[in-house]
Design a protein around this nucleic acid. Structure first.
Lengths: 113, 113
DNA sequence: GCTAAATTCAACCAAACGGTTGACGATTCA
DNA sequence: TGAATCGTCAACCGTTTGGTTGAATTTAGC
């Protein structure tokens, strides 16, 4: 099992490249074979294949082969840890303080005021 | 002016490293000088300084020098384009399905159940 | 004015990245 | 069977990254 820290590393790194973000965006419109994904880009198929591998390592993309074609599917769930991390930055005050307080309360560590 | 595509590159790349994410998290608790930020890490000050420079390039961190000390401040606003990009991924499905359904309905292509 | 402290700068290193080309394996189809 | 197609693999190349160490710079304090 991948340590969660590494999961975030892989996810953010996967999104840090414009080619990969374009592939992700394209997959929102539906599953697609590798060659279709590669078409818009002025680079070799092998290069796109590597980008896809990168997305796969991050769990953002899965492939299912049917014949000689590999259909790529976007796995939006894999995006959630990164999304949560970012969202937490904006709200950490409220969320974390509440949870901390609740936990401290459960443990009887909260001093009455 | 930085092209917006590059802005996303820099932001996601900045977040793709655990040291930098830890620095960001630490700065949520308040501004801090470089050496304070460096303390938790088992690496040289120069290394942390480079990480900070990386965050600065992405616009996520600004410095204000007071004397020989540099106070670092988190710039959460710089996170917004990346956050928006990710949020868009999560909702495009619903949106598109709704629009598709509406369009099909308009065309009389929707089968009654 | 001298010394110590807080950072950055510069040079270096190994590893990863993003791309290329060419060979290879699998599959379809005539 | 043989030729074409889809995609990956392998080797290579130049650049970037994340770290090191040591010197340079700027400010503080005695």
């Amino acid at each position: 099992m991948i340590p969660p820290e590494t999961q975030l590393d892989l996810t953010f790194a996967a999104l840090a490249d414009p080619t990969r973000r374009a592939i992700v965006a394209r997959l929102l419109e539906g599953d697609a074979p590798v060659s279709d994904l590669a078409k818009p880009f002025a680079m070799s198929l092998a290069a796109v294949s590597k980008h896809i591998a990168h997305l796969q390592r991050a769990g953002l993309l899965t492939q299912k082969r049917t014949g000689r074609v590999r259909i790529c599917r976007l796995e939006l769930d894999a995006l959630r840890p990164a999304s949560v991390w970012m969202a937490a930055l904006g709200h950490i005050d409220e969320v974390d303080l509440d949870q901390l307080e609740a936990r401290l309360g459960d443990l009887g560590l909260l001093e009455p005021e």
